[in-house]
Simulated assay, not measured.
Amino acid sequence: MTRTVVSVSGPPGAGKSTLVQALAGAMGGVVVEYDDYEVITSWPPDKVIAWLDAGAPLENAIAPGLHEALMAKTGLVFLETPFGRACPQTGGLITTSIWLECPNDVALARKIASLAALNVENKGFAAFMSGWLHAYEAFTRRALAVQRERVKPKADLCIGAEAGANDVLSRVILSLKKA
């Protein structure tokens, strides 16, 4: 059987996970999320900074098992990934690549809101959030610039993600049906 892989990329908080889940629900197909395989977010800050200083080689941003997970799927597959076609591990498997354009401040606000919603009862959340925001200043902003520079130009479709999730979903479905 064949597979059609539609990747959805964008900065954290752009709505990648929300969109791939909605697309799978509306169009059928399965979802594969990069976050289920990636290891870079477990790296200490000094290792992330060294990776950025070395030019952010994407072949070092490994996600063990992701390629195999995609190869095991057939039919319509929606891949949530920060790297789209720029990912050496999975870029060649992507049929259509979508970039969700979202200003960093909007993406950051969305990410903070989603983290806060998950941690309402967590008394250590303030300390966690303080560390997360420090990381944003220390290296995440740089990583987002690298992501936009390398991933966005390889996208087949660039959609503004500031609109509501239903509007983004409708525009993507319309574009996929035209393709």
Rank of each mutant, 00 (worst) to 15 (best):
N60I: 05
G131C: 07
W132S: 07
E149T: 12
E149N: 10
L19M: 09
A179H: 11
A24E: 01
I40E: 14
V6Y: 03
P82V: 05
E38F: 13
A24S: 11
G55S: 05
E33G: 15
V31Y: 04
K16T: 11
G91A: 01
L176Q: 01
L70R: 03
G75H: 00
V172W: 00
P12V: 15
T96D: 02
G29V: 01
A126P: 06
L19I: 09
L100Q: 04
Q89K: 09
I112E: 04
G84Y: 00
S114Q: 15
V120D: 11
P103F: 03
L144I: 12
P82Q: 05
L133A: 08
A155F: 04
T74R: 07
P45N: 11
A117N: 11
L157H: 02
E68Y: 07
Y34I: 11
E137W: 10
L144K: 08
N122G: 06
N166Q: 11
L93V: 08
A145C: 10
R150D: 09
F83I: 07
R3W: 05
H134M: 14
A63Y: 06
G15T: 02
T41F: 15
S175K: 11
A22Q: 09
S130F: 13
L108Q: 09
A116S: 15
G65Y: 06
S175H: 11
L133Q: 11
G10Y: 10
Q21H: 13
V5G: 03
E33A: 15
G160I: 04
A126H: 15
S175N: 07
L144E: 12
G91V: 06
L79Y: 02
A61K: 11
L133I: 13
G75L: 03
V151A: 04
L118A: 15
A69H: 07
D46M: 12
M27E: 05
A61R: 12
L19P: 09
D156K: 01
V30M: 06
L52R: 08
V8H: 09
L93E: 13
V151D: 00
E59M: 06
F83C: 01
V5K: 01
R150G: 07
P153G: 01
A24T: 08
W132Q: 12
I49T: 14
D105M: 10
E68I: 12
V146T: 11
V168D: 01
V48A: 12
L52Q: 02
D35S: 14
A50H: 04
